[in-house]
Design a protein around this nucleic acid. Structure first.
Lengths: 220, 220, 220, 220
DNA sequence: AATGAATGAGTCTTCATTCAT
DNA sequence: AATGAATGAAGACTCATTCAT
């Protein structure tokens, strides 16, 4: 279901320091920081395996090779661990949104868009378990909804900007931007989850084509 | 978050005899059928409110104005209630997939696609709580994943067929079909959840334009 | 430490219905009422044995021959069980306070006071575990303090009334009333806990003498 | 509830070398002695605030501005800290018991009793949190009960001695002594806890009058 | 002598499911 | 067919105590 190997790509530095939990007051020393990182990574692994509700604090603790009590030294509860992870993902994706290149029907534009989509797909694959769990937990704790909106706005606006430049007549750029985000997100999801069997280059090509094709009709 | 009023549109008949639970073997009299319907609808309402894991059998039972024990007279467990609901949705969506009109850049084609998308959006809005919960439960019980695949295949193939007719050079119809499904599904999601504020006609126009625009470049 | 046998004197009727917990909404049938009574009595027994903090919900449940979950069907938690018991005691003691006879240095007055003190002592012995635990829990939950004040006021006022009649010069009746209550309460406590070894008649005689003696100097 | 200011009156020296914990064997240097004192006082403050069971070692340690591990350098556990405090109180009260003046209906006797009661009240106010907590802990560890008995005996005997001198006919001096102790203790408790609103002089006068009045009927 | 981190046994509490009427 | 009561396994969380530095 989830390819644990890809977790190796996880850069611990990215995930820290993102919490405001019990540790907010304490200054962590090296040992503590290390433990916290182990817990964060264990969280990702476990959530990926069993989802949010399916994961027991016990699972996380075992994975992190820590004791039960230690967990609560760093996070008030499971929710807070997820929140820390979500915050990390949010930060990353917001940065990515800022780096969306100018959309234009030149070969340079094509290349850079394709590269960006590749990066998006990589990150998506990496953070999918978190995103997935995030949705799952949204019901319990609506602070998650807030975090998500930020990312949605950032990405949506970036695409809207591209659509504005293309200026297709009769199409609201904001709406078109959202449509493109929808396309990219879900298509990436379908490929990442193997719902469609397609090799990476083909999927990137198709996505690039559909995006630019819909914004800049080749006949122009 | 979820517009409870829209549940009034739910046709109980649609949700009915789709289960295979404890009742599969016995014939339900009028009273029993009525109770079962109440439970099914209560399930939707509760799942919509609190998600799958957040919903207690107790909540469902209260909403249905039935007693605790009664629930287990009709469903072996909570999963099975969801499964019944999911099956109903699946059936509906599969039918809808079959009715996707021929995609063509004529005004008739445009009209019929727009109408289909409107219907899809309606149904999506109606069944969103179920779809949502379905995703949530996927981790526990992978029989749900199977049901989802059926729908995915049906819809994806329908769009692929459209893409095949358009036959854009250098684009695999299957992949393009999936891309279109991705676009339609997620864009509808964004509008249904009000993540983007847009009136229904505009959203339908945009969606129609983007789909046909990407398949049939107007300059041809 | 605590003489379990005396619990046999406990009249279940007295202890019921005193709660406002989870059962507040439900109407209890015979079976439920029975269970609740078993839990209440088990509470007294266990609190008597191990004190409030020392008692585990598990202990209570075992004593009541009920299951763990059942407890929470009737009480939200341990505190609430104690509160129910405290309320019962309060009610009883308030009634008793109302029945304090007129204090007068006649042989009738002497007899009726002695009888009242005997009743007080009996009740004290019976409810001591609850009173004890009550004090213990006061720190956690200050609603207990309120309940206690009621009883204190009732008893204190009753004695003050007696002191007022005696009208010793230069002594505030309210203060004297409190002093008498103090005397009665703590002396009863000392005898009930065997801190002083004295037979019941002697202790009653002494108490009666000290009270009347201090209010009505025999030389008058 | 408890007037923290009065803790300022606490003389650290009084609380000191009464323990027999981990430190019993080692000689404490100035620094260690200071730390220990901080812990003892922190214990009083915390116990006063939250009671014995409600107080966490963590609370004490924070109040004392020491680290978690330090606590166990001085006390084997929480019980032992309380025991140290209880021992200190016991010592003080025993001394006080020894200083109870001769009870006699003269103005000198009256004065000296009143002065003693004033001192008792002061001490009671000061040590109430400890006494309180002591009762609370009695359930867990019956060594506490022993300590209490010593004090009870000392005070009770002192009053019995007074009663013996008065030699009221038909009243056992031992029992009467206990009754007087009961009166004094609980009345002081009621005033210390503001359960009765009365100024200090009045309460002392009343108490003195009641005691002497009951021992020496003025009409004699 | 002091400290921050770690530990894990011990409890409370929830809730899906079964039972007796 | 329906219901209120009972059950107990499963999990979250706390906190006294120990450990390594």
């Amino acid at each position: 279901m989830y390819d644990d190997e890809s977790l190796l790509e996880l850069d611990p530095v990215r995930l820290w320091p993102v919490t405001g939990g019990p540790t907010a007051e304490r200054a962590l020393r090296t040992r503590g920081r290390n433990t916290m990182n182990r817990l964060l990574r264990a969280g990702i692994v476990c959530f990926a395996r069993k989802g949010f509700h399916g994961t027991r604090v016990d699972d996380i603790v075992k994975e992190a090779e820590a004791s039960h009590g230690t967990f609560y030294l760093y996070f008030a509860n499971k929710d807070e661990l997820l929140e820390a992870l979500a915050r990390a993902v949010t930060a990353e994706l917001t940065v990515l949104a800022g780096s969306l290149p100018k959309l234009e029907p030149t070969s340079t534009g094509r290349e850079s868009l394709r590269a960006w989509l590749a990066e998006f797909a990589d990150m998506y694959r990496l953070y999918r378990p978190i995103l997935r769990v995030w949705t799952e937990a949204e019901n319990d704790n609506n602070s998650f909804g807030q975090i998500g909106n930020t990312v949605f706005q950032a990405l949506s606006s970036a695409f809207a900007e591209g659509a504005r430049v293309a200026a297709s007549p009769g199409v609201d750029p904001e709406v078109a931007g959202t449509a493109l985000l929808a396309l990219v997100e879900r298509f990436t999801y379908f490929t990442a989850t193997n719902q469609i069997r397609v090799d990476v280059p083909t999927s990137l090509d198709t996505l690039t084509s559909v995006i630019l094709g819909s914004l800049f009709p080749p006949g122009d």
